Amino acid sequence: MIVTVGDVAAGGHCVARVDGEVYFVRHALPGERVRIEITERKKRFAFADAVEVLEASPDRVEPPCRFAGPSKCGGCDFQHATPESQRRLKAKVLFDQLTRIGGIDPARLDGVEVEALAWPEGALGWRTRMQYAVGPDGRPGLRAHKSHDLIHIDKCAIATERIRESEVLGKHWDGMGAVGVVDTDDEQLAVYTQLRRTARPHHKSGPKLVHQQVGSNEFEIGFDGFWQVHPAAASTFLECALDFLQPREGESAWDLYAGAGAFAAGLAEAVGETGRVVAVENAPASRTAANLARWKNAGAIDGDVAAIAPDLGSVDLVVLDPPRSGAGPEVVVALGEARPRAICYIACDAGALARDASDLAIEGYELKRLRAFDAFPMTQHFETIALFEPVD
């Protein structure tokens, strides 16, 4: 059918309504008139692809990657939009999620925007970590959207130049379920394989321990350890977090879901020798304790944040960088009992941030400052950094 597309929604879709029916449409932009093809029906709505554009938005462009589009690679959601309009769409999603789910006063979000991260290739060539699915024939590729269909590609446009020029996509990986490649700050590529999604990664080539840099601090993590995929993200997020928290000499701080410990290291420098920083992380590949060993005022606890946070006592500052699912009520309650003067929440999912913001309000904390960054150009994803403080 032919529809006129409405506003953007979470998940890389725009919403179209026809005769009381709701359609979440990919590959469209607000205001466009498009022909759609239904891809999945639910009880109260349906998903669809825009397969023909009859009236285009002025923000529409030709996708820079030939593998982007309906029935093609599902990795990028917005290659058909200018980078500037992508950021506007993401800002609208953030506003809607925080006001509708989080209960945040719209006036507090007035003028909210998603900022670009500096990178020589702009919205392309930024992704330092790629994982490709491997088909029965041993050839790697990327999945179509919400599908097991494998799209064989010769390169990924958002991957870094070193990854694009590597031989990973040109090889056969017989018997494997996936192959991954990591581009590190010391200009080396680490390659790993997995038998299946839930299996432990197996190192194939390159360094087993990779190095990442934030300012003058270097972090060593396992080849399968977590690190921000945009080269400019880690330093930008740390700078923003410290600006929000304004750490003082002698204060105590927690870095929850600490990863390699980049935020903990920054906090340790800021609170000085009389301060104390505790990092909590449960992934051995992050090597949190080893990365913090040079700071006498910082230490790491290996374990689950929800299990450990209630027993940590009180604290002045918290950096909270949970997985996409969010921190959850247990962790938020523990923060409420610890009564920090400030909580800096780093969120890779606006919906999870909104849910946790609602729970933080119950614990007596309100949103004070907010910045969002386009750390994943061409995709629906972005990063949000929010400051919560106790209600006056």
Rank of each mutant, 00 (worst) to 15 (best):
P136C: 00
P106F: 13
G261A: 07
P329C: 06
K43F: 10
V112S: 06
E389N: 02
G326T: 10
A372W: 04
G170W: 03
A298Y: 05
F226S: 06
D174I: 10
A386L: 10
G364D: 06
V22D: 00
H172S: 13
L109T: 04
E167F: 11
A56N: 01
C76H: 03
E84M: 05
D359H: 11
A107D: 09
R197D: 11
Q194Y: 00
K155M: 09
I104K: 09
V278L: 13
A342H: 08
A307G: 07
H230N: 00
L29F: 08
Y365F: 12
D392F: 07
G6H: 09
P136T: 03
A68C: 13
E167C: 06
V391F: 09
L242P: 02
H152I: 12
D174L: 13
V280R: 01
P58W: 10
P323N: 03
R248H: 14
Q79K: 08
D311H: 15
H203Q: 10
H145Y: 15
A10S: 14
N217H: 09
D374W: 06
T288W: 11
A334W: 00
D321H: 03
T384W: 04
R127H: 07
A157R: 05
G177H: 12
V229D: 04
D49T: 01
D185A: 08
T4W: 01
M1S: 12
P83L: 05
R88P: 00
R339A: 15
A338S: 12
S205F: 12
V8R: 06
E37W: 07
G259C: 10
F263W: 14
D49N: 15
S325P: 01
G135S: 14
K92I: 07
E113G: 09
L94K: 11
C14S: 06
D174A: 10
H27E: 05
L117N: 02
V25H: 00
D154S: 15
A190S: 15
E32H: 12
H381G: 09
K204W: 11
P322T: 11
E389G: 04
V333Y: 06
H203A: 12
H381A: 02
A46W: 02
V179L: 06
A283F: 10
S205E: 15
L89T: 00
P120N: 08
E383L: 11
C240K: 15
G103A: 10
D374K: 00
F237Q: 02
Y192Q: 03
R44E: 02
E52A: 12
P58Y: 14
V134I: 11
P120R: 02
A347S: 14
G215E: 12
G266W: 04
S325E: 14
Q213D: 14
G69F: 07
R287T: 03
S325D: 15
D302M: 12
H148S: 14
V93R: 12
L317K: 10
V5D: 00
D224S: 13
I362S: 09
Q131L: 06
W126A: 00
P120A: 05
K90L: 03
D110K: 14
D19K: 05
G299E: 15
F382Q: 09
E21H: 00
L117W: 00
A16D: 02
P64F: 01
K204D: 09
G12Y: 06
P83W: 00
L292W: 04
R127A: 03
I221S: 01
A352L: 05
R33N: 06
E161M: 01
G74L: 09
G103R: 07
V134E: 09
R33K: 13
E62D: 14
E84K: 10
R33F: 04
E330Q: 14
I153M: 07
